[in-house]
Each structure stands twice: as C-alpha cells, then as structure tokens.
Design a protein around this nucleic acid. Sequence first.
DNA 1: TCATTAACTTACTTTATGTAACTAAGTATA
DNA 2: TATACTTAGTTACATAAAGTAAGTTAATGA
Lengths: 109, 109
Amino acid sequence: MADKTICPKFESALNILNKRWTGLIIFQLLEGAQRFSTIEATIGISGRVLSERLKDLEKQGIVKRQVYDETPVRIEYALTEKGKALEPVLKSIQKWADGWMEKEKQSFI
Amino acid sequence: MADKTICPKFESALNILNKRWTGLIIFQLLEGAQRFSTIEATIGISGRVLSERLKDLEKQGIVKRQVYDETPVRIEYALTEKGKALEPVLKSIQKWADGWMEKEKQSFI
DNA sequence: TCATTAACTTACTTTATGTAACTAAGTATA
DNA sequence: TATACTTAGTTACATAAAGTAAGTTAATGA
C-alpha cells in the first residue's frame, strides 16, 4: 500500500484494460462505430455495465458518442484517435492468444 | 448473452489481463523472480488477492512457484515461457501510455 | 520467553457486476 | 385511438469480487 515504483502512466493505462469488458468493447469498436444494443448483444455485457463503461471510456477520451438526428435517433459509439491507438495492444494480445492459449486445455479461472 | 462472434482464445486471453492486478503482477515478474511480500509491497495489492491471483496464474501456466529449501525457506514466483511471452503485450501498453496518457490531465474513473 | 518475519488464510466489510424490470420518445399495427 | 414494439438507457435489488485487518505456522533472534 506504500512504495509504488511503477510508472504511473503505465499503471493508469493498465487500470483501463484491467476493468472487465473494456478490452472487448474497444476490440469491437476497432471494427467501426457501433450502436449500444449491438455491442451489448455481441460481447454479452449487461446494459447496466455497458452504459457505465462507455461513460468511463468517453471521459477518458477513448470513445466518442455520436448522435445522428434521424428518426428514430441513432446513437453510435466510435473510437477516438487515442482509442484507435490501442489497436497494437489488442493485436499483441491476439497474437499471444494464438500462440499460447490453444496449447493446453484451458480451465477458465 | 447470446451470439459471441469473437475468437474464444482471444476472449480468454483478455479475461486474464482483465482481472484487476494481473497485468501489474506480470509486469513486476518480467524483471525477474520475486517473493510474495515483495510483490505485495511493490504494487500495493492485498495479500488475500495476491495469493488468489498467483494461484490462478499458476493454474494458467503463466507463473511458476519456486521453493528454495533454505532456512528460512524462500519462495519465489517467476514467469514461465508462456508468461514471458506476454512481454510484448505489456510493452505495447507502455508505449500507448507514453504516447497518450500524458497529453491530457487524467481524471481516473 | 517474547518478539519478529514470511507466506499465507480466515472472517468480515465494501465495491463491482449481474438480472430484471422500468422509462421516454418515436413508430407501427389493429 | 389504443396497444405494442424498438432504442438507449436507468433503477432497484441480489450476488460475486476485492479490500481490511487480524490470525496461523514455522523458524529465528534478542
């Protein structure tokens, strides 16, 4: 609880990906802007938490909320530049998963 | 809750880093094998959760527990090959943090 | 003998997440 | 006109995960 010797920028970056669902949300949005209900259904997150996460990510400047004033109104969530810059991170996770996750039967937990 | 179109290997890889503290633990161990109390003090995690995480990571084949039968006994946790293979992931997070985390004052949350 | 350290575990509290039902605004259907 | 449906959420409540603090075991050290 005392002497953190770790780079604070790195730590707060980790705190973003650390939270459940954020990685998956960003991964989804790398494919392009998406609506609330689409994200909800695709990654299997509850609406309550998705709403919470999107607000966090917006505050963090990673996601932007775009309102299209059609009838009915269409709202889409998209990555900002900062958000798109996370692509290499997600890609490197994917690469690791490809190389190491299949080799043993996974037990989850 | 239904139609996941995302690669399951990728998803379970994310589920590891997703959990609070795992990223930081692995980052610490990239510097070399470390003792329980060292990790605890350095990253500021509670003993209860550190114990839980190390067991998870061991089960996942990412960390190995090494017992040195000295007096007093010394126990060290080290990364396996699978664990070391996560270095590029952590590095890419660091790179992103360097490029993007400083540019705006961060609000945390 | 009493205190200390390492590596945990246990009991209990607080926080995060999940579930399900509800809301508001507009549209479509009977 | 009334009823039902859809989107993008919110609210209330239940369960799971994390934090806190104290306890445990074994081996020294003062």
